[in-house]
Design a protein around this nucleic acid. Structure first.
Lengths: 348, 348
DNA sequence: TTTAGCACTCTCTTTCCCGGAGTGCTAAAG
DNA sequence: CTTTAGCACTCCGGGAAAGAGAGTGCTAAA
């Protein structure tokens, strides 16, 4: 049996109607929506074929039809019309992205809230470096004889700093030596190598300096690890409760606590600007009857981020995809504008 | 009519049974739970009195009794037995609080997750300074001729820093002058005063330095505002869905989106180590039929934080209160240990 | 003041029934 | 061979009715 053009049209109508109403779609409705050029009986024959082909499902005999995951997939791949964002929408997206760059964490959580409230589904956002973050430059600022400030600039030009309490008094004269040591031996290498290097230089350094050195390295390692760890922020989980498919508290609870506590296993595609995962295409069990739409954006040249949306398989893929890529573009632009300065090995 | 000791005992039984089962409590059950010293008929008489006195309510004739807010209040104030945390629980709490001090934000979100999963209700956490944060010390580190790093130590000894891109080349020789200016004129004053002061010094400074100066101050103002702004982190909202009173998706949705989006209006009592707000005692409309338990903890001497729990009025107040104050103590201790160094006007 | 007894009330669950929507099949028409 | 009208049939959802159960309030006696 073949998938004629008419069958495809029917499938399209079914998907779009079902997405709108969440009710199985009947032959009569379809006939009406096709402009009355064919009768409902004809549609019924076609529907039976579509079920047999696996594109539609029937909740029970004598109910209308509902798209199967396979049906959605065909719809997304071939039938769905690329939707264009209206100017107003684009503006709204950009307006919601006038964020301060200060803290990446805050930015992620703001962005995910914005996305979620714009698509009316739960959303998630991450940012991750393309390669491992290293320290690029160190400084130490003496505060008093018992404390000093470590300043570390990282590979992505973010700067981290903290007050360090010293176990021993340190001769102020020696500070420049130490800074120099830090900048020559501990920049541009991984955290493992930093720990390694710390052992290597142990003997070359007077003991009371070594204490400060290792405190500094410990801080650096922490900060680098934290900064390069992929943090995932979710928002808008409560939106699920508005959907008929999640009126059931148990179902809703399962998904919501997944989004809150086990979000690491949300889809994180490595490639492509956008990915749509429909129902069972998801590997994670909880997501087996939801769909996920993920888009990626660029943070300068070094980093890449993902924004995703989780919803029922009955999702308005066209709109969600359009809005999501609007956001991705917006974010890429935002980060591009505030571009980090060009990289050159800046070892003091 | 008087509130005899026996009535109080009955009230206590009703509260505790209702908290456990979420079902209206009948006279027979109560009689049994009182050790069989009185008959259910006697209890019935007493119950009728308790309803008249306003401590209990009857969902409908011929149903058991349910505590009214007034009843819970009496229970909390006078009937409830102070509950003691078991050693295991205390250990569990402290274990969950082995947090790194790195970022206050992370810490808050970790703490609120821990609290929530420990009491099985949604939780919220904040930290807020007792007074306005000021800058205590500035440094500028030249990176290249077009960029430098601002380092600012704040009143609470946290250090913030960022790379600054300069619009103009700046003479390296002049940097120390600028740093000196920053440290003499811009430390220890509010952000408003900082902006003010910026105007004042405008004429005394060569123009190309002034540009850098104002960029620095702009960063400082941002960072100080962000750091002193009260951030509220919520966690565990999905726990609500396990409770029978929130099986109704609309109700759950209302409260959950409140917790996600309008959490600023959660109770933030100014005083006392712990506060319990029962049902209509809450000013916020959404919380009118929920209860909130809030405890405060200290972050060193300068700051104070709150941890709170939101749940149904049918809440195990004794346990929640005990665990919450366990957490509060744990946090106070945690921050006390990692105490910030003593303050002395450190204007370099 | 307490208690036993009992009729009564109200909710919750189950069952049954009915209307409506939609189907699948058949047979005729294009 | 495809399309269409017609029609019996299926299944869901909602509402009514009935019954069970829990608990009450009242009365009268202890």
């Amino acid at each position: 049996m073949e998938l004629t053009e008419r069958k495809r049209q029917i499938l399209k109508v079914v998907v779009e109607d079902y997405v709108r109403t969440a009710e199985p779609v009947g032959s009569k409705t379809i006939a009406a929506r096709m402009g009355g050029s064919v009768s409902s009986a004809t549609i019924r024959n076609e529907l039976a074929d579509l079920v047999e082909l696996g594109y539609l499902e029937q909740p029970h005999t004598s109910a209308g039809r509902v798209p199967s995951p396979k049906g959605y997939r065909l719809y997304v791949n071939e039938l769905m019309e690329q939707q264009r964002l209206s100017v107003a929408e684009t503006e709204r997206i950009n307006a919601s992205l006038h964020l301060k760059m200060e803290e990446l964490d805050h930015l992620l959580s703001q962005a995910s809230r914005a996305v979620s409230s714009f698509v009316n589904y739960p959303a998630y956002v991450t940012a991750a470096g393309r390669k491992h973050l290293t320290a690029r430059r160190f400084d130490l600022l003496a505060v008093d004889e018992r404390s000093c400030i470590v300043v570390m600039m990282m590979g992505d030009n973010r700067v981290k700093s903290q007050l360090l309490r010293l176990q021993l008094k340190v001769d102020l004269e020696q500070m420049p030596t130490l800074v120099n040591l830090l900048n020559t031996h501990f920049t541009g290498i991984s955290v493992d190598e930093m720990n390694q290097e710390l052992m290597n230089v142990a003997e070359q350094v007077p003991p009371q300096l070594f204490l400060l050195l290792s405190q500094t390295i410990a801080y650096a390692v922490d900060a680098l690890e934290e900064a390069s760890q992929r943090e995932i922020v979710t928002a808008g989980a409560s939106q699920l409760l508005k959907l008929p498919e999640f009126r059931d508290a148990d179902k809703a609870h399962e998904l919501m606590s997944f989004l809150a506590d086990r979000k690491e296993s949300l889809p994180m595609p490595e490639d492509g600007p956008m990915k749509i995962l429909i129902g069972p295409e998801n590997v994670t069990e909880v997501l087996k009857d939801t769909s996920v739409v993920v888009a990626s954006y660029d943070i300068g040249d070094e980093m890449r981020g993902l924004i995703g949306v989780v919803g029922p398989t009955r999702m308005d893929y066209a709109t969600v995809a359009a809005r999501l890529s609007g956001f991705a573009d917006g974010l890429t632009r935002l980060f591009g504008k505030q571009e980090l300065p060009p990289k050159e090995e800046g070892k003091e």
